[in-house]
């Protein structure tokens, strides 16, 4: 869910950009280190960004019967790690602004913070927590993907509520208003994206389990192919 160009007041746009920069810079440093150790990974991140971009353009059947677009936040965080997702997400969001006019340049920082920082870290954290609580692989992936999606939508609602507090009810009422409006599309989308991500990992585990083992997402004894 992108905040459009110019929607945030100037101070908020600058503030969210400053908040997002350390995560993108930290991600770039981590990627640099990773490339030093494994030079063959240099191409991987650019290709991964293209993958995330085209994935976000796919039409996803929603449980309400309508269609929407997956964010790919959870999938990306599980495949490439939450730290690498900040620069990858930044590039994807910049491209969405420049090639599709979704989002914007002044709101790029706010969008990076919700979709490339909060979402991926939430996905990675929820996946680890679910696995440590002995949840099955499929349930862990579903929870990670759908709750990551929800966390980005809650963050965007918080950003909007902070920028535009309700004149009578203040921040809380404004948050309830924005979250209520966007919940109509975002909750069904989160559930659909959770199912889709499970189907993707099922197909990967069935036909190409070695990739998941290399990413340390699937134990060696779970390989079925």
């Amino acid at each position: 869910m992108h905040i459009m160009e110019g929607f945030l007041p100037f101070k908020h746009a600058v503030g969210w950009t400053i908040a997002a920069v350390p995560f993108v810079a930290g991600g770039l440093l981590a990627i640099k280190k990773r490339i030093r150790d494994k030079p063959e990974q240099r191409m991987l991140l650019g290709v991964a960004a293209a993958f995330a971009f085209v994935l976000s353009a796919l039409k996803l059947p929603s449980v309400t019967g309508s269609c929407s677009h997956p964010t790919g936040t959870g999938l990306g965080a599980l495949l490439f790690g939450p730290v690498a997702m900040a620069p990858i997400g930044a590039v994807v969001l910049l491209f969405q602004a420049l090639l599709l006019a979704h989002g914007g340049l002044t709101t790029l920082g706010a969008n990076i913070f919700s979709m490339a920082v909060v979402g991926p870290f939430a996905a990675a954290g929820i996946f680890r927590l679910a696995r440590s609580l002995k949840a099955s692989f499929a349930v862990s992936v579903f929870l990670a993907a759908s709750l990551a999606d929800l966390s980005t939508y809650v963050t965007t609602s918080l950003q909007l509520a902070w920028a535009f507090p309700d004149p009578t009810g203040g921040f809380v009422t404004s948050f309830a208003k924005f979250a209520g409006i966007f919940a109509i599309t975002q909750i069904p989308l989160a559930i659909s994206e959770g199912f889709l991500t499970v189907l993707i990992f099922n197909a990967l585990a069935r036909f190409n389990p070695q990739e998941l083992q290399e990413l340390k997402l699937l134990p060696a004894d779970k390989a079925r192919a």
Partner: peptide, 27 residues
Amino acid sequence: PRLAMRSLGELAANLTLQVWQRAHALH
């Protein structure tokens, strides 16, 4: 819708694998 979700899952899984294959070929 059920078939669509399944097909989309297979499509995305196939694309996911291509990420590594194409990155390796580019390298």
